[in-house]
Amino acid sequence: MTFLRCSAAIAALLVAACNNSSDSQTQSDNAIVETFVTASQHTISPLDINPSCVPDSASNSPLPEGLLVFKRGEQPTRLVVFSHGIGHTVQASWLPHMRRELRLAQHYENSPGGVAFVATDYRDNLGFPTLRGAYDTIAATEYALEKFPSIDTVYLFGVSMGGAVSGTAIVESAAISDDGKALYDYWITAEGVSQLVETYGEAKAAAEATGNATAMAAAAGIERDTGGTPAECPLAYQRRSPALHAAQMQLGGVQAATVIHPVNDGLVPHNQGREMAGALTTAGIATQFFTVVGIPEGQDPGTTGTGTLGAGEADGTLNLAGHGSEADATHPVMRTAFEQLRKMLDGQYNAEVPYFECIVDHRAPEDSCHVDQF
């Protein structure tokens, strides 16, 4: 499949908007990019035995920026919500994806209606704001749904830390709704965090052993969002671990989920994807699990487990996929994730099979991984 690059130029037409959020719109090629301030109106209630285990209030400001991308003059029936990972912003990493996917959506053969795309930064954006980010994601989703009442299906797509953010958003949106239903119908999680205690332990160990800046930011950010360490705030970590809440997702109405994880992930080990897929299947959600194994020779594998363990010199020989940058649509993890999103939007995604597992490798035959053959 050919993946289109976004145009580097965007026409600069800014129009003042309403909804109490200092919005603006940029229009180009019938695409509108609307910016808004994400201001969640929901109160994050503490659910821990320790009342101090709540997100650090000092990290609640400034309020983050959200982006809504849609086709001019269209009343979309589907919404795609993106949840980004640590160290990323929607302007730098996700706006190109949103613009590209909007263009591609105009050419789907089976498209039942238009598509809009929304994403937001989070409060404490460069930390690890799993719960705070989940509520910011919910607020951005509600913003889009209010603007377009025509939307009837919502797809949620999270990467890395965004896997925990998006999975938590599903559960929390159901918890605060009047009918117990989540805002989201389908979920894609790519190289996503599903067990926050594990991620905290790995980040803490890496920070202490190597002084790695990302690991230090992750460990400190997790503590700000949970209110403490796992020993101090066990229920806060449980609340932010999607693999422990698959049953609530099923009760909330999630129809199907796709989990994608690289085998040599050096930031979020492959077992977290396996645990998430297993939990979803056990809960009765139709689940497809893709393990990304090989990468073409010469392609950047991303952050590898071998590299994290000090054996990075082997990466050039192994050619195993590591943790890809979410800004890179050509990395096999992100490529697979976008392929599955496009199948969903084009009505080609098979949500009837209870469980399907696939090995993604560029050396495998192209027809070796079709869910319909099982």
Results as ranks from 00 to 15, higher is better:
A116N: 07
G266M: 09
Q25T: 11
L267V: 14
N20I: 05
L320N: 08
G284P: 07
V80S: 01
P112N: 09
L95D: 09
L95V: 08
N319F: 07
A243I: 07
T130D: 01
S57V: 10
S28A: 14
A215R: 05
R100P: 09
R363G: 08
V293P: 00
G227A: 11
V268H: 07
N125L: 09
F157P: 07
L280K: 11
T304S: 15
Y200G: 11
A31S: 10
E232V: 09
E339K: 01
V115H: 02
D185G: 03
A119C: 06
A207I: 06
L104G: 02
L196P: 06
S24W: 01
A16L: 08
Y122T: 06
T306L: 15
R72L: 12
W94G: 00
L47I: 14
S93M: 10
V171Q: 13
E191K: 02
S166A: 09
T137R: 00
D29H: 13
I285R: 08
I188N: 12
I151P: 02
G66P: 03
A203E: 11
N350R: 05
A311I: 10
A218F: 08
P64F: 06
N271C: 00
A140N: 03
G114V: 04
T26H: 11
A279M: 15
A279N: 09
G114P: 08
Q27D: 11
G201K: 04
L14R: 05
G294M: 12
T214A: 13
A314L: 15
Q288H: 14
P296H: 12
E109R: 15
I151S: 01
V81K: 05
T2R: 04
F3V: 15
T35G: 09
A175G: 02
T141E: 03
T281V: 11
A105F: 03
R335K: 07
A231Y: 00
A364K: 10
R103T: 08
G294A: 09
P354E: 04
A164G: 08
G284W: 05
Q195I: 12
I359A: 13
V333W: 03
E198H: 13
V90Q: 06
L251M: 12
V154C: 08
P129G: 13
T130G: 00
I86D: 07
V81D: 14
Q272A: 12
F374A: 15
R5W: 06
S325A: 13
A217N: 14
E172K: 09
F128Y: 15
Y355W: 12
V371H: 10
G273Q: 00
T38H: 06
